[in-house]
Simulated scan of single mutants.
Amino acid sequence: MTTRQLSLVLLLLLGSIQVYAQRQGFHIGLKGGANISSADGDHYRSLHKLGLQGGVFLFYNFKPNLGIQVEPMYSSARINVHRNYDREDPMIGNGTKKLTYFSVPILFKVDLGNFMSLLAGPEFNSLKNDDRYTLNDGRQAFKSSTQLSYSLGIDMGMLYFKYRGGLKGFSNLPNDGHARIGQYQLGIRWKII
Rank of each mutant, 00 (worst) to 15 (best):
G121D: 03
L30H: 07
G138C: 09
G165C: 03
G93T: 13
G93V: 07
R4V: 13
N80V: 07
P72E: 11
L58Y: 14
G67A: 00
L112C: 11
G138T: 08
S151A: 15
G67T: 01
G177A: 10
D40A: 14
G182T: 09
G41A: 13
L13R: 03
A179V: 03
D40P: 00
Q53L: 08
I68H: 04
P90A: 12
L148M: 12
R180K: 14
V56D: 01
G33F: 10
Q18D: 12
F59L: 10
N61C: 04
S16H: 10
G32T: 05
R164I: 04
Q69E: 13
V19T: 13
V56P: 00
F26T: 09
L12I: 07
L58G: 03
G187F: 07
P105I: 04
G41D: 10
D130Q: 13
M1V: 14
N175R: 11
Y85E: 14
D40Q: 13
P122R: 06
G95A: 13
Y60W: 14
G54Q: 01
L14K: 09
Q24V: 12
K168V: 02
Y74M: 11
R83I: 09
G55D: 09
I106G: 01
V70C: 00
Y44C: 10
G25C: 05
I181N: 01
D137G: 03
P174H: 04
A141R: 13
K128T: 14
F124V: 07
G165H: 00
I79Y: 04
